[in-house]
């Protein structure tokens, strides 16, 4: 699937993202935003779409550290 075809709500797993790839995505996001995903967010749903990832990052960058 071309990247342009991905909307914020496209299911990334249906679009072909493996769980191994989702780990890479998570690590890259942690590095970029200098955050750590806590255990409670280490679920498949957190990385299921661009919107879901954005929500999680927003939560982690605006809330006080857990």
């Amino acid at each position: 699937m071309p990247i342009d075809a991905l909307t914020d709500d496209t299911d990334l797993y249906e679009a072909g993202m493996t769980s191994h790839a989702s780990v890479t995505v998570m690590l890259a996001i942690e590095d970029t935003f200098d955050i750590e995903f806590p255990e409670r967010l280490l679920r498949k749903a957190t990385f299921s779409s661009v919107a879901a990832i954005r929500d999680a990052v927003t939560q982690l960058t605006t809330a006080a550290p857990a």
């Binding site: 890479t24 690590l27 890259a28 942690e30 590095d31 750590e36």
Partner: peptide, 8 residues
């Protein structure tokens, strides 16, 4: 984990 982030 830092090493994993550094070399995705």
């Amino acid at each position: 984990q830092a090493a994993a982030r550094a070399k995705l």
